[in-house]
Amino acid sequence: MNSPSTPDRDVLVDIRDVHFARAGRPVLQGMRLSVARGRITVILGGSGCGKTTLLNLIGGRLRPDRGEILVDGQSVPSLGTRALYELRKRMALLFQSGALFTDLTVFENVAFPIREHTRLPESLLRKVVLMKLETVGLRGARDLMPAELSGGMARRVALARAIALDPMMVMYDEPFTGLDPISMGVIAQLIRNLNRALGITSVVVTHDVAEAMTIADHVYLIGDGRVIAEGGPQAMQASSEEHVRQFLDGLPDGPVRFHYPAADYVDDLRHPGSRA
């Protein structure tokens, strides 16, 4: 509606030449990527490369310094508060920590968005919440408090909450980080099932290569504030591009240097009190 060009039916999120700097340091420099509707798009990158910033930009919590961000044809930075909130009802962001409300039970946490945005009677609301919890396998945990949940369970509850209103897109911020292998597998399967069964467009931001590759339809590798490489999972695995190889194989030294920039080694040892 607000974009100057015709919206592409197959592209849900379109990031065009986005620049963003925080406290003077450039985080994104000419970022270009698009998220296909109904597909799982994985964004890989090292820590601090701006992956989470990207999600915040898509969600409208941050404004880009330059460039365009289109979600379902609407330009996110130019939306007014009310329109932005309407758009947010159709997107969900799963935080790394789950961000569950610590003073509410699991049931109440999942019920929260439904209570806030709909007028469903209690009996119907209960059924919906239980169904969402069943999807993530935690229906029996509904009366627990967030403090009593393990990391993996908390993230699953957060996922149930994220899909409570049947959004068109779910963004996952580091969903695999800090979990044991079983939990990681569970989350990966949930992401894939939600996508296949409900057609929910998924954007997964992570640095967990192995899990991500098993579910990705399309992969972006970002670094230096821009896209370094992109392609389907097989194409990425087969790529010989040095950035891709270093990241996928976990090589300690390559385009991303091992040594933090410092002065000459011998000079540093020789002259006491010298600064880096």
Partner: peptide
């Protein structure tokens, strides 16, 4: 600090 406020914002609740 536990991102509950941010989470709320993303759920379109001010």
């Amino acid at each position: 600090a536990t991102e509950q406020l941010a989470g709320m914002e993303m759920m379109a609740v001010n």
